[in-house]
Design a protein around this nucleic acid. Sequence first.
RNA 1: GCUUAUGUGGCUCAGUGGUAGAGCACUUCCUUGGUAAGGAAGAGGUCGCGGGUCCGAUUCCCGCCAUAAGCUCCA
Length: 602
Amino acid sequence: MSAIAIKYEDKIVDLQTAEELGLSGQEIELDNSPEALEVLRHSTAHLMAQAIKSLYSDAEFYVGPVVKEGFYYDFKISEEIGEADLKKIEKQMLSFAKKKFPIERYVISKAEAREKFKEDHLKQAVLDMIPDEDVSIYKQGEFEDLCRGPHLPNIGLIRYFKLTKISGAYLGGDSKNEMLTRIYGIAFATKEALKAHMDMLREAEKRDHRKLGNEMKLFTFREEVGAGFPIWLPAGGRLRARLESLLFKAHRKRGYEPVRGPEMLRSDLWMTSGHYQNYGENMYFTQIDDIEFGVKPMNCVGHIKVYEDELHSYRDLPIKYFEYGVVHRHEMTGALHGLFRVREFTQDDAHIFCRADQIEDQIIEVVDFVDKIMSTFEFDYKMMISTRPDKAVGSDEVWEISTQALKNAMDKHALPYEIDEGGGAFYGPKIDIKITDAIGREWQCGTIQLDFNLPSRFELEYNGENNDKIQPVMIHRAILGSFERFIGILTEHYAGEFPMFIAPTQVAIVPVAETHKEYAKLLSDKLIDINADSEIYAKNDSLNKRIRTAEKTRVPMIVVIGDEEIENKTVAIRDRRTREQYTMSEDDFLKLIQTKINEVNF
RNA sequence: GCUUAUGUGGCUCAGUGGUAGAGCACUUCCUUGGUAAGGAAGAGGUCGCGGGUCCGAUUCCCGCCAUAAGCUCCA
């Protein structure tokens, strides 16, 4: 295999440029490495533009970058174009690729470029953004494009690609500007890699929690209820209740006290906290007897009021309050997405009030808590420290101290993290937990936020050793993030096949005949005694049909009960995971279920 | 919020300028069955909501609501 580019001073330089400038470096071959794919996908974007230009002669082109999930090109044509046209464009791309045009590069002045692309007002907009005097042009066959590269030496190298999506996009991402057409695509160096990618997309589609949630009757949305307000159905309710009770115990063990603040608080309080000024556009307000109230978008103010209910000694700290807090946030309609982004959700929220010297230990304790839960669900995760955003309260100094405190805690325990500049909450910096699911997708759930600002704004204090008044530090934290999003992620992570300890139903009981129904009910009661939910499939259907129906609900275990089982006090088990059938004594079976449910503790 | 598309019984979807159809689910009956769909009959829809055009609208037009994809990743 020959090189398609080189690496020079840590930058990818294509062969055309390298030759021109006489550069040399480590060769990059056409494989599925990030560097090679970047070059390949960039050239594929150009090939797509070439095909579009040949099919729609009035096409004007904006930008065509490589992105995380492939590449795209923004352009404008007079004709209407849709999903169905993608095939046509792909075909045209292939026919160009077969001609193996070399990709040539040359440099001209910006003025010359302006003249060259005078027909294309989008290219002019691109030129406006380039500060340099000279610009590079890449040419393949008849097609020329303004581009800084890097590109492949020849379009014949582009073989395994797919156009995936077509949509609108604003010029420069600004909704005040004109709307362009955007086509997304993906390209790989090998056929296998492309196939694996397409398989992953199909798999993701199959796992979509909106689809599974509907099929498995976990939750639903209704137009007449309102966008972004989920309705939990019985199966979803059972799953959620299991999570809640596991988590309740876990909090109690770690010294958290359950509390609860009101859904609505007077607006004055939101002004004190700064939410009114910094978060108001996401809040819902209402008027009661001439007083304005804000529906809580976060639980911290309620917990602050709990803290204020009595005087605290330095000996009592840290004080930890937790609540499954229902919050409302006004998200843009276009941002709503199944359970992943809703307007009402329940956080597994907690606030730790502690002394400055306890920050590090508290942060680490929370990180451990997170680790315990995430590893139980077999999630890999990484942590990200987010710094001061544009809209923020508090002095730079306080931000600096608190951001440093987070970094120190992490560094001291050799915990790896990345930095997200400007991603913090308006009252303090945070550590976000990003988990990776079963098919490699990343999700943001948990968050640990360090806050000196709210304690100061609410003038919180505790009595120090010398009876002096000292301001506590507040740590806001959520581990699942919200039950909604987390259950959505779990659904996709497990493809609906929830493990025993959170499954909505642990066991499906199928009595062979009418005469076995009574026994099935007895077994079901025994299961309730060990905290396992079961459903009896005793409808007037054939045995086969009832087993099939039970299978479709993705229940972890199906047990069939007939004369034989009743006589021998056994159950015939059908295990979802192994798809195997075996017989077990009823006692052993109950013990097994009990073990499987109890083996999980956060 | 913006752009585009979609919206037909509980679910998945056909269909049409002359007020609708299938499969699954549901109800009743027959079947009493040993591990992935037994059979029959029946009930269920003002075709998302509101307005307009038309003799007539679920179908065409407009507005709204909801859903989906995208709108950040800079030649």
